[in-house]
Design a binder for these strands. Structure first.
Lengths: 341, 341
DNA sequence: GAGTTCCATGCAACCGGTTGCATGTCAAGT
DNA sequence: ACTTGACATGCAACCGGTTGCATGGAACTC
């Protein structure tokens, strides 16, 4: 049989210390109400008995569980783990535990998880939710909610603006002398993809350089690698990829064709999920998913504390993180590429 | 102010349906005890009132929370997300929620999280715990526990046997002509690290080649990169790294020193978390972390159901996945390296 | 020295369910 | 017709805490 801790209760401590249950409770929650000697005596007794307050019982009577839920569409997507980690860390600072939900990109599953979490968390963070606006609003009326990367009036939200970083990327390339650049796109249904492409287009046109889009279907290493031929065919001397995974594929494809990065070709990723892990280290647009996680949790904890909901719209600008895959445009480089391809 | 669901209680349903609270409770938990008509009436009333049983209250009286905890050392390590995902999926099939804890590779933090989770979960899965055997046993005596990658008698455990894969790796290297190989180690508290090192040592000695260990402290890109000098100093012509992240760091470090992989040096990772995304694509030992997550949760749920603990030792064998970072040992290569270093 | 105030502590109700036992009813058994 | 038993339902205690209010004694005031 499973050996279970019999669970030292407040009553046992009370009896052992010769006080009422309420005093034990207060010793833990509001020691200022008791005389210092009593508190010390109770604490010692509790300690020696190995008493630990029962979270569940406390939650039942106070309505405060000390838990928050975090729901993400796909843990395996490298965008999320840092966010989860940061959220966890922030929650931990206030002694909150985190319920993690993975929706497998499925709105039904998301709905189900929210429901299941609802009665045991004080609040919820929904990251890149796939739910409809209505469902989200419905849930928000039931319990404190913070959104990440979803812009709904009246619900506190943290938004990562990749447009700003992409603009910097284009400026950076122009400064290095590039006059024709390519955008290796992501999934056509992705809001981020639209945002990035249009930011790139407007930056390119306002800076007076040419820009072409090369499709990569899926955001993946393979797509990136396959797109290399098409990228070079455009005659561009630099490219910005939808995300780091795609960029990494492009990097491999270029290496395969013996085109050196950055001396022959400059490359920039997005989301900075690979950190400095590629060789050469990838210049990328920061994603700030860690901050998003941290801020979202901190916002939620604020709401719980003040019992008030403010209409917060926290926008995280992104920036270019310059590493080693971007350099001055080589003279006549585009010709030599086309020849080699 | 936060709009909160006022929370329909069992009493309200009871009154509305004209029955006792206990009947409402039974309608939900043991409908066979009530007449079908009563059940139906109660269910209808509950439905119309929007009643949802309160998880916390139920947990308090039954001691069953329907939650399990999963504690990992580092979410950001790509070894874990697939495991978490699989665990989540398995838990979900039995309507269990998952508490996620991230210990930041810190035993203190791990201890703290176990304590904090203990009173709100029915059981715990500890993945690659960094805690001492004693602490783990202490916790195991308090609540049902399943370990992943830690081999303690009497505590159910799921072990990913990287030994089998590492052995294959050594054989592979020997077949390619390498006669001196290095092991780039991971955290000293890691069971997997010990296992890999000893598998490597025994394989090397039985195949009659030399092997040296190079420490890398933490399993990370940076550690790997920093270890390159030491690796080359051993005179080895090939290395097996504790994990893929470390291997990727080594790869970058080698590239930096203009040592080509695999023509000048062969490298093998472990865990196969990077798939084929490095360049060159990393030869690695498969990890099976998804299966480990799934099996661990399923084991735990079994324990909870039967209230019995069996001494299960579930071993998952691994294999070498050959890609592009291993090749024939170049003649005299070790001399030339040492010179260059 | 009597009245007042304050503070530490205890009492008991409550959070929202579950569950062992008692009760009442109705049909079957003799 | 009377006992017996099965079955449906209610009562009340309990899970382990929290908290508003009552109480009693010490300290303080005049």
């Amino acid at each position: 049989m499973i050996k279970r801790a019999k669970g030292v209760t407040i009553s046992q401590v009370a009896e052992a210390a010769g006080v009422a249950r309420s005093s034990v409770s207060r010793a833990f929650t509001r020691p200022d109400m008791l005389s210092p000697e009593t508190v010390e005596r109770i604490m010692k007794t509790a300690e020696s008995l190995g008493y630990v307050p029962n979270h569940t019982a406390r939650a039942l009577s106070t309505g405060r569980h000390g838990n928050i839920g975090l729901i993400v569409p796909d843990i395996a997507n490298p965008f999320f783990p840092p966010m989860i980690q940061a959220a966890q860390l922030e929650a931990d600072r206030s002694d909150f535990c985190i319920f993690l939900g993975n929706t497998e990109e499925n709105p039904k599953q998301e709905d189900k998880l929210v429901g299941r979490f609802a009665s045991q968390v004080e609040g919820l963070v929904l990251a890149s939710p796939r739910l409809s606006d209505e469902r989200i609003r419905a849930h928000a009326s039931q319990l404190p909610l913070v959104l990440i990367n979803r812009d709904l009036d009246g619900i506190p939200r943290v938004l990562i603006d990749s447009g700003s970083g992409v603009r910097e990327a284009v400026e950076h390339l122009v400064k290095l002398g590039h006059s024709k650049i390519a955008y290796v796109s992501g999934p056509s249904t992705s809001w981020s993809n639209k945002q990035r492409r249009s930011a790139m287009r407007s930056a390119a046109s306002s800076l007076g350089i040419a820009m072409e889009t090369v499709p990569a279907v899926l955001p993946s290493y393979k797509s990136g690698r396959n797109a290399v031929g098409a990228i070079l065919a455009t005659g561009a001397t630099a490219a910005v990829a939808f995300d780091d995974l795609t960029a990494q594929g492009v990097l491999a494809g270029l290496a395969e064709k013996r085109i050196s990065v950055p001396s022959d070709f400059s490359l920039i990723g997005c989301d900075d999920v690979l950190g400095a892990v590629t060789y050469p280290a990838l210049t990328s647009v920061s994603n700030r998913s860690m901050e998003a996680g941290r801020v979202a949790v901190s916002l939620l904890l604020d709401m719980l504390q003040s019992r008030a909901v403010r209409d917060v719209r926290y926008v995280l600008e992104t920036h270019l993180v310059i590493r080693e895959t971007t350099a001055l445009q080589p003279k006549n480089s585009s010709e030599s590429f086309t020849a080699r391809v």
